[in-house]
């Protein structure tokens, strides 16, 4: 898909497409998770979601089954690589876990007036289940940015990125595709503004 070259906002976003997302000092390298996969965080999750699949904490059941031992709930994949948050000031940062700022299409669209954000799609893929001791790295790459679309929330752009998760041996253990609509709330249809 080639970008709409007559749209200066979309044209300005072309620099992100196909590129890793992150601070320049990381040089596009995958980021190490703060913690290795571990029992306490698994049990915290099991209790929060009341997910009593025995393979998450019953070593006897788990060792007799396909996984050969206790595994982490697969949906925890993203949790392992969530950054350690700075709690003070998180409201002022709009919920961002830390002060780290780097050039990215979501901020660029904020600055261009497309301040609304709505997550539209999530696709998690698991190559294998994780075991305690696995230590992940993750890297985010902008897969695509749509041309400007008129949506029910106003004019906007769909930004799609793919996070790839690798283990301590460099093997891919999972992926997540994530799509967000960044929209300009002042252009919502029916507000008397430009609705074409």
């Amino acid at each position: 898909m080639s970008a709409d070259v007559d749209d200066p906002v979309r044209a300005s976003l072309e620099r992100f497409v196909g590129k890793p997302l992150g601070p320049p000092e990381e040089g596009g390298e995958p980021r190490l998770a703060p913690e290795a996969v571990n029992g306490p965080m698994i049990r915290h999750w099991v209790d929060a979601f009341d997910d009593r699949n025995p393979v998450y904490e019953n070593e006897t059941t788990a060792s007799e089954g396909r996984f050969g031992g206790v595994v982490a709930p697969p949906a925890m994949l993203q949790t392992w690589t969530m950054p350690r948050p700075k709690i003070q000031g998180i409201e002022a940062r709009g919920g961002a876990p830390d002060d780290m700022t780097f050039d990215n299409p979501v901020s660029a669209l904020d600055e261009a007036g497309y301040v609304g954000a709505l997550a539209t799609n999530s696709e998690l893929e698991f190559e294998r289940y994780l075991k305690p001791g696995d230590h992940l790295r993750s890297i985010n790459v902008i897969e695509s940015i749509s041309d400007q679309k008129m949506t029910g929330l106003g004019k906007g752009y769909f930004v799609t990125w793919v996070t790839t998760y690798t283990d301590q041996d460099g093997e891919v253990v999972g992926r997540q595709l994530f799509r967000v609509l960044k929209f300009d709330p002042s252009t919502i249809p029916g507000l008397g503004g430009d609705t074409k």
């Binding site: 699949n53 709930p73 799609n121 998690l124 893929e125 698991f126």
Partner: peptide, 29 residues
């Protein structure tokens, strides 16, 4: 969204049990 995925995973394995391996969770929000 992580919780939504967590509950979807739980909904599936509450039915499919401990020998199930979830390969993909693709959702429209």
């Amino acid at each position: 969204i992580l919780s939504t995925n967590g509950y979807v995973s739980r909904f599936i394995t509450d039915w499919a049990g401990p020998e199930a391996m979830v390969r993909k969770i693709a959702i429209r929000l």
